[in-house]
């Protein structure tokens, strides 16, 4: 994948790319001879939301802040689970059926890989400065609400 910004830790790799995420051969990016489990999650744009048809989602990103938040998230997850972790998110237009986020984790046993992937997507949604503008079949557009980062 051609990431336009990325960061690495000892056991994790994260980044952002323009357009949809690649979903093949992710296992090779996290595999390790000592790891007997690989879990993957693809967040895919669906053709409906809140009762409305959707054709695509245009993702807006604050690259500096998003990469920082993704790095902190990967670091936190790697501290909690003994995994090798990959996290990639899209910027820009992603059409129905294409992936906007991919997460892969490998671990010695399945519970850690599955837990790491599940926690990563849950946390990404509330911590990383990324915004969705949904585009309908007739090009109607609406920004989706989300989680406030405000702490005061």
């Amino acid at each position: 994948m051609k990431l336009f910004t990325e960061n690495r830790g000892t056991h994790w790799h994260c980044g952002l790319l323009d357009g949809p995420c690649q979903t093949d051969e992710l296992d090779a990016l996290v595999s390790h001879p000592a790891h007997g489990a690989i879990a993957q999650f693809f967040g895919v744009v669906r053709n409906h939301n809140d009762g409305l048809e959707a054709a695509a989602v245009d993702y807006d990103v604050h690259p500096e802040l998003a990469l920082k938040a993704m790095s902190e998230l990967c670091s936190d997850i790697s501290s909690e689970y003994p995994v090798r972790l990959l996290l990639v998110h899209s910027r820009g237009l992603v059409r129905v059926g294409e992936a906007s986020v991919v997460i892969a984790a490998s671990s010695a046993h399945r519970k850690d890989a599955l837990g790491a992937v599940s926690d990563t997507i849950d946390q990404l949604k509330v911590r990383v400065p990324i915004w969705k503008k949904e585009i309908g079949p007739d090009d109607e557009q609406r920004w989706l609400d989300g989680y406030s980062l405000r702490k005061d």
Binding site: A66, G146, Y147, D152
Partner: peptide, 25 residues
């Protein structure tokens, strides 16, 4: 820059970003 600010804080430069609630994934 890459620092989130609380309301009691002071901006050092001359530019900020305004970040609405996030919705990645």
């Amino acid at each position: 820059g890459d620092e989130l600010l609380k309301d009691h804080m002071v901006v050092e430069g001359s530019a900020v970003s305004v970040l609405p609630p996030v919705a990645g994934g």
